[in-house]
Design a protein around this nucleic acid. Structure first.
Lengths: 212, 212
DNA sequence: CGCAGTTTTGACGAAGTTCAAGCACAGTGG
DNA sequence: CCACTGTGCTTGAACTTCGTCAAAACTGCG
């Protein structure tokens, strides 16, 4: 069930109780409203962030404003680790979002916990490179919908917490192209739009084949 | 100086003595000839590979043969670590290449050594996402040349160990487009081709501005 | 109910791909 | 030593896909 209106904060059905990154006294949850910056490129890094509910976009900008979203993070996922002491990307809340911030005491060795997360992120980024480098618009959107579906437990109904603009900037497409592809997929009977932010997958196999 | 013909194996000028990943008795160097497979997607992972000389391409394929190279690895660099027990990519020698293979004894915790490598790789992959998602052909090639130059110590002369085909598959372009962009950069006096595999950067600032 | 922002749709143009041909260079053998 | 051949690179012309610009339609919210 999709949480409707009982609370001020949107709680999509795919929210799970994530395993905390570290033990000990529970870190309080920090709230970010839609569009709020969590950290900026160039800022000093050091903390770890775990999404409690909501969604986060990680992105970079070119001087003229072009934006590339390199990842979305949903409930349960951890982000914010960097190769050096500086953030190389921006992190923003897409919607009202709750995040647990873990300030790791300097001198603590977190590599055992961090390595699997970093490797998971690396694999995802490399797979996304294939999408951006070698797939066309339909294939990209299909791959995206499959990815979102799988990250939400493989359900027919998929919630898209982000705007068409975000999807475009994630897939290296314009919002118009994203919109046109959605229309084409609807016409082909592959998906159905329940509302702007949630779709239903009608032909999973076709979608999978398109996204490779 | 570029090693000419004294040995059978090409030893580009930018070969450095890499720091070994692990201590102890020196692991022997395994040789791969041009195009030889180091590992394949789907194979069991577990070893670490450090390039001694030569160059390696990491890539993925789509069912119809489209290829995306996600990374090149040059002398001194380590690759081969994965998020799970399986390789998700192919690794091939671009030229005659020497690789030290470290079979990590099961039960050994390498996370302290691996984490910085994984994070470095993650940052590079994410930066490459920006190139593939949001930059046009000239910007991609410019960014590539700058990257190669910096990885070789920022010299004016840059050796390209890979073919135009490899460059295309790394930048998400066809070989024809890569070639045309090289021609344009020559016409603008930004670069000069010494031979097919080595270029000289004449206007570094212009190239940097183009690649952002 | 009406407004603002987002999404969709349409017409057009530019960038890059495809297909095809020609060129350059290294290696081979006469 | 030079022609021959193969491979990789460059160039050209036609075509396709996606981006741009503009306008209309829709959604959600006050």
């Amino acid at each position: 069930m999709y949480a409707q209106a009982s609370a001020k904060i949107e709680l999509p059905s795919y929210v799970q109780s994530p395993a905390p990154v570290s033990e000990g006294p529970t870190t309080p949850v920090t709230f970010f409203s839609s569009g709020a910056e969590i950290y900026a490129q160039g800022e000093k890094a050091g903390a770890l962030y775990q999404v409690e509910f909501g969604a986060v976009r990680i992105y970079r900008l070119l001087a003229d404003g072009r934006r590339q979203i390199s990842a979305f993070h949903m409930a349960g996922e951890t982000f914010g680790f960097e190769a050096d002491a500086t953030h190389h990307f921006f992190a923003e809340a897409i919607n009202a979002t709750g995040v647990r911030v873990f300030r790791t005491p300097s001198g603590t060795d977190m590599s055992r916990q961090l390595l699997p997360l970093a490797l998971k992120g690396l694999t995802r980024a490399q797979e996304h490179l294939l999408v951006l480098g070698r797939q066309n618009a339909i294939e990209r959107v299909a791959a995206f919908l499959v990815e979102m579906s799988e990250r939400q437990g493989g359900l027919r109904q998929v919630e898209l917490p982000m705007s068409r603009n975000d999807i475009g900037d994630y897939l290296g497409l314009t919002i118009e192209t994203v919109s046109r592809v959605f229309t084409r997929l609807k016409e082909k009977g592959v998906i159905r739009l329940l509302n702007l932010r949630s779709i239903e997958i009608l032909k999973r196999d076709t979608l999978l084949a398109m996204g490779e």
